[in-house]
Design a protein around this nucleic acid. Structure first.
Lengths: 104, 104
DNA sequence: TGGTTATTTGGCTAAATAACCAAATACTTG
DNA sequence: CAAGTATTTGGTTATTTAGCCAAATAACCA
């Protein structure tokens, strides 16, 4: 493995890591419906606002989310529509409802 | 959030977590080409075989990989073809080569 | 300006993770 | 059966991560 390959893998792994936590995944799923502000997401996740804020800035850093300030609130949304496909693939591996045939 | 939703999110997050490490992602990418045994993957990753083995069993546990023993070797392969789409989406967020427009 | 609300940042602690080494297990072959 | 090879498991340590609280920052309004 070349060092360039290693770097590419690390960057891509960082994007995945940004979704690899129950609260962060829940946030990503919620944002598929449209943008939300931090306080809405705090209610959704049920953690301290500072905790949620750290999750969000980590996801933004990874390129998964973008944010946009309007008045007192900061609204977050998904950076990419393709995340929908991403999550649909996920459901083939870890279905929400049990199936006899878990995957393709 | 109901507890059922929390559980579903955790399961899905576990699948993502199984790919959220540079070595594990590299393994998943390599297995897109076809199955490999542990010692091949150890050479690819460049870590101790026990480390690679632990990564692999974690990925299998999450449902990302399946394994199959033939003779002395244990061959691993991806559990699902859809991982290709998964990784392509990833490249829109974290491209291998820099682009002026990082995402959709 | 001073108060109020939304969000982020810094600091700390507890828990989870990744790595290595050594030992155990499983299979094959002489 | 003994020796050799491939893989896993157990144990330990260092690092990273997640969470909370308290304090700082930013924007709005009276």
């Amino acid at each position: 493995m070349t060092s360039a390959q290693k770097t590419a893998s690390s960057k891509r792994a960082a994007v995945i890591k940004a979704l690899a936590h129950p609260s962060r995944l829940l946030i990503a799923e919620a944002l598929m419906e449209g943008e939300m502000c931090v306080c809405d997401l705090k209610d959704l996740v049920g953690a301290d606002m500072s905790t949620v804020s750290k999750h969000l800035s980590m996801m933004r850093q990874a390129g998964v989310l973008v944010s946009d300030k309007r008045g007192l609130n900061i609204y977050y949304r998904l950076a990419c529509d393709c995340l929908g496909d991403f999550l649909r693939c996920l459901d083939q591996l870890a279905p929400k409802k049990a199936t006899t045939k878990p995957c393709c």
